[in-house]
Design a protein around this nucleic acid. Structure first.
Lengths: 253, 253
DNA sequence: GAGTGGTCTAGACCACGAA
DNA sequence: TCGTGGTCTAGACCACTCA
């Protein structure tokens, strides 16, 4: 009764029991021992089988639920999910940081940094009233192996006079600029990703042909009151960037 | 000591205590009562203050941790996180389904459905050996208000002879096709998103100008042994599709 | 009514960090 | 050594499903 085939929960291990159990069930599902639509053993059965408490079993199952591998129905049981494979999540860990890690000679160059008077478009974006508003504008280009890859334009509401930091010259981040050059606290962001083609100006700045494919990412950063306090418009060469994602029961670790 | 200002945990509510408490702390953070970098009260303090058990407090905090709003350090405490705002997640709930929900007259048309002999490229993609392999190929176009929006090509390894279902004619999904026309079980998928420009053929099929911007999504579907069992290449008009995402302490619910 | 998952408790011991 | 979060237990009661 204690020794069933192949199961391996080591209660004295430094690895938490809930973690071992989650891994064990996950592997059983991957091996097809529990098939999509089928019920897992009940929490109490699992607890008895491995001689652990029901709360620990529940913690393991909670992990699997959050991974989308099983779902629980009160009063009925816990069932193996069928992977949907259509709810795709593209994770964009900062286009540039990713390149920097892999690429050689990746560098960011500051093309321009100046204070503008907000024109109508910027007043609209930042929901500013009439009058004069100062906007800090940064334009940077990134390159790897002397090939230009992306062009970024960042705008923030400028309220705090403060010298530019060395780090901001290298790679100014929008939340970082807001924190150091304005009185606002950046706490949330909205991004819109589009596919576009290069204008003549963009093509010239990136050293590619006009009409080349580009990713366009527009970011708006908000403070806790949902006031827009930063905005950026960045383009990335379509022939150099791609976004990859995984869905379903992919192997982790 | 029991009655502090404005706190509201109703132990007799149908709403779980851990949920009430998580919401309460979340709002306190949003209001700035706990600021980024500051520590929350200890778990025991919170438990005492609201006269609930520490396990329940921990469950609430676990919610906030998973939302990225706080982080816990063993031996030190639990701290309010600074939103990073750079780890962007683009969620792509099936380009078409999203359009279908909002748009009028959204429809999918089957242009072609036939069985091919795998050529070298397909053999390579599906990691097939020499010999003859049958591949089921679907080509569909979607349109809204008589404007064509996307073009999809799907390929699966064909092992099961079965008539086409009505639903497959309307909107064949890759995992669905695999489940019904092959002996494989689709459990995971890899997607690659690129920005490209329309070829002459694509432009003709979509009724747009060659050189127009497009999103290109390539999907590979795998069975539990990580064997590729389905593949698709779809293009979406760049002037009609965009992908939006949110990051940070955005309002939920 | 029996069986399921959902919530909650009041403890216990551990690993880790700081003084 | 003390206080923190991390894990785990052995119960309890509830809400829900189904026969």
């Amino acid at each position: 009764m204690t020794m069933q085939e192949g199961e391996a929960i080591d209660k004295n291990s430094v690895i938490p029991i809930y973690y071992q159990l989650a891994k064990l069930i996950r592997e059983q599902i991957r091996r097809g021992e529990f098939k999509p639509g089928e019920a897992l053993p009940t929490e109490i059965e699992i607890a008895n089988r491995y001689e652990i408490s029901r709360m620990t079993v529940r913690r393991s199952i909670a992990e699997l639920v959050s991974e989308g591998m099983v779902y629980a129905l009160q009063g009925k049981g816990t069932f193996v999910a069928s992977p949907k494979l259509d709810n795709v999540v593209f994770e964009l860990n900062n286009f540039n940081r990713e390149m920097a890690q892999r690429g050689l000679n990746f560098k960011t160059t500051l093309l321009q940094a100046k204070i503008l008077r907000a024109d109508d478009e910027l007043k609209e974006r930042f929901r500013l009233g009439e009058g004069t508003h100062r906007i800090l504008h940064f334009r940077t280009v990134t390159a790897a192996e002397d090939e230009r890859l992306s062009l970024e334009n960042k705008y923030i509401i400028y309220t705090k006079s403060k010298p530019l930091l060395e780090s901001e010259l290298n790679d100014p981040t929008l939340p970082g600029l807001i924190a150091s050059h304005s009185d606002y606290l950046p706490v949330s962001a909205k991004k819109v990703l589009k596919a576009v083609v290069a204008t003549n100006e963009e093509a010239a700045l990136l050293g590619i042909a006009a009409g080349s494919p580009l990713f366009l990412v527009e970011t708006t950063v908000f403070d806790p009151d949902l006031k827009p306090v930063g905005w950026s418009k960045s383009i990335y060469r379509g022939d150099r960037y791609k976004i990859t994602s995984y869905d379903g029961w992919y192997q982790k670790e």
